[in-house]
């Protein structure tokens, strides 16, 4: 049996995997690393950037608060006065848990993985709200470019802190670029605003020991795949079924791998059922195959909104491996 790591490499490089890569198994994500504060259930907090986040008791997750009182950046032309990146210097104690976790990972089997979120576009809409962020593409493109450069600079400074400490070899990076049936912006606009910054960012991580860039966008983004390849993404995690994943694999599978095709929205429900999960997993595995494909929930971490769904999905994938891969 191949190691988890070798099985992954065979999968994404068009070789001979001996089973499906099972969801996030190849990534050991070091979530203990200091990055930003998030609210716990029932809390409202203002984070290091000055953005207010709330997680009401009865909701399944937290979100930025964008009413008039709380929206941080109301006029993008003033971003220099308002947006102040937090320090990336943390005392050694804050790193200790992350360092210990990284040291305990068997690197022959798994990748020591940095988690980075929010991504560049997400940060823009967390700062100013989705609508203003989107309109600034047209109304204040210069300011938006500058703000994006500032965010890139922050991430690189953060990378310079975390890389020597954890010596990570993979990056799991969020940035949602679309909704369920369309990308948020046209490929042309994506090219104008995001390609160069992401090339710089992902290039920096890769020049410093990162072997694998896994980018999360649980959305439609099939039209952005050529750009994803260009900016150096190795694996697009979160690919929803609306993208027609088999077609993407056929067209681009020699240059990028796809992780997802099991829509969280469809199976990760309060009254989830093992049969429904099995059905979705079977569909994903049979239509996508194992070349350049990793069956996975579209959710942006190895968890589910409702307890049990993630593990049940893993079990269903294991069964599909048993059915679809000949036993030696």
């Amino acid at each position: 049996m191949l190691t988890i790591r070798d099985n992954l490499l065979e999968t994404i490089r068009g070789g001979k995997p001996d089973r499906f890569v099972n969801q996030y198994e190849y990534l050991d994500i070091i979530l203990e690393a200091p990055l930003k504060t998030s609210p716990k259930r029932g809390e409202t907090i203002t984070n290091e950037w000055g953005i207010t986040f709330s997680w009401p008791q009865d909701q399944i997750g937290h979100f930025p608060v964008h009413d008039e009182e709380h929206r941080l950046l109301k006029d993008i032309t003033k971003w220099r006065e308002i947006v102040k990146a937090p320090s990336v210097q943390y005392p050694d104690e804050r790193w200790a848990a992350a360092v210990n976790h990284a040291a305990a990972v068997d690197r022959r089997d798994k990748y020591v993985t940095v988690f980075f979120a929010p991504g560049i576009f997400e940060m823009c809409h967390h700062l100013m709200g989705m609508e203003d962020a989107m309109m600034s593409f047209y109304e204040e493109p210069e300011c938006l470019h500058e703000l994006i450069d500032y965010l890139v600079d922050y991430e690189i400074r953060y990378a310079k802190e975390i890389i020597p400490r954890l010596k990570p070899n993979a990056l799991f990076h969020h940035d949602d670029w679309g909704g369920q049936i369309a990308s948020f912006f046209s490929p042309e606009m994506f090219a104008e605003f995001f390609v160069a910054p992401y090339k710089k960012l992902y290039g920096f991580w890769k020049d410093n020991g990162i072997e694998l860039i896994v980018h999360h966008s649980d959305s439609y983004a099939a039209n952005l795949v050529p750009h994803m390849i260009d900016i150096g993404i190795d694996i697009w995690q979160g690919v929803m079924t609306t993208n027609n994943t088999p077609e993407l694999i056929k067209q681009y599978g020699d240059r990028i791998a796809f992780m997802g095709d099991i829509d969280s929205g469809a199976v990760d429900t309060m009254d989830w059922k093992a049969e429904v999960i099995a059905e979705h997993v079977e569909k994903a595995c049979t239509r996508c195959g194992s070349r350049a494909f990793i069956p996975c929930l579209t959710q942006g971490l190895g968890i589910s909104s409702f307890p049990g769904v993630y593990d049940e999905t893993s079990r269903a994938i294991e069964r599909m491996s048993g059915r679809m891969f000949p036993r030696p």
Partner: peptide
């Protein structure tokens, strides 16, 4: 039809 995206629509409405 997917010929334009959310920003184009927002900006037209504005």
């Amino acid at each position: 039809t997917g010929a334009i995206f959310v920003p184009e629509m927002l900006i037209a409405a504005k």
